[in-house]
Design a binder for these strands. Structure first.
Length: 272
DNA sequence: ATGGCCATCGCGGATGGA
């Protein structure tokens, strides 16, 4: 079972690239962030013709998330229950590769709970948007505590807008205490790890200076001046099944790319 | 480096992104 996450920075602009990428990378579940459109404009038909059903949680102009999948989604939840938010940032659903297996809260290995999330940017430490980011992260964690009990096989993936440490930053000195790199943000990220989630990227040898986002400016991609802020985290029960994780830089080389690259994880059907 | 680039809204230039 392959799962992926990709911030596509407008589904309107990037739809052809997402379809091309899915044709070349037929993952089972793809989480999208930054749709930047309302639900009524989401291209369900285009994805259906490509063999994917889609669940979306859109918003005009900003944010918006979706889950594409080869098998139908069940128990779809939008945003973080218990955290009041007027932005569309989270969509969750259960998926099973075996239609005969029960979905939902089952610990059946064939059933996986997937949370696709677009974490707040935060703009600048000390700003109102940074305070919102901190509150959002607290709300996410409080909710996840119960979600992990309900769904032992859980994947949390998306655009986290946080680096784990200096290895995720092209210029650690220059970006010290800057947005995406502050101790406060990293504390929240480590708190997710402390809850039993694992960063799948770090389970494997990765190319040096592996990033998932590059600024559009200053030829940042060509110079590999980037950040690793898109992550795929798995629960304790799923960790033994993780077989691979990689960042696909190919779409970033397109003529009109998203500033983010997709991240892909592969899960074995059962624990080894 | 003051900002560079991109998408949206909407038709100029502000806002948000990261």
């Amino acid at each position: 079972m392959k799962l992926a996450t990709w911030n596509i920075n407008s589904i309107t602009v990037r739809l052809p690239q997402v379809l091309d990428w899915l044709a070349a990378n037929p993952v089972d579940v793809l989480a999208l962030q930054e749709l930047k459109l309302t639900d009524d404009k989401f291209p369900h038909d285009a994805f259906a013709q490509a063999g994917y059903s889609s669940q979306c949680f859109g918003q005009k102009t900003y944010n918006g998330v979706a889950l594409l999948s080869r098998t139908p989604a069940s128990a779809v939840v939008k945003n973080i229950p218990g955290f009041d938010d007027d932005m569309a940032r989270v969509i969750s659903a259960s998926f099973t590769l075996d239609p005969a297996a029960p979905a939902g809260g089952s610990s059946n290995p064939a059933s996986v709970r997937v949370i696709g999330a677009y974490f707040p940017n935060g703009q600048e430490p000390g700003s109102d948007k940074f305070e919102y980011k901190m509150a959002w992260l607290s709300g996410l964690r409080a909710w996840l505590r119960t979600e992990l009990q309900t769904y032992p096989n859980l994947v949390l993936m998306g655009d986290f807008n946080i680096t784990f440490d200096d290895a995720d930053v092209w210029d650690p000195e220059g970006m010290r205490d800057q947005i995406h790199c502050t101790d406060e943000e990293r504390y929240h990220l480590q708190a997710l790890i402390a809850m039993g989630l694992t960063d799948t990227h770090r389970l494997f040898a990765q190319p040096p200076k592996s990033y998932s986002w590059w600024d559009y400016r200053d030829m940042a991609f060509r110079r590999n001046r980037g950040l690793r802020i898109d992550h795929i985290l798995v629960s304790h029960a799923l960790k033994p099944r993780v077989q691979a994780c990689h960042i696909d830089k190919t779409p970033r080389k397109n003529e009109r790319p998203s500033d983010h690259a997709p991240v892909v994880v592969e899960l074995a059907p059962n624990a080894a």
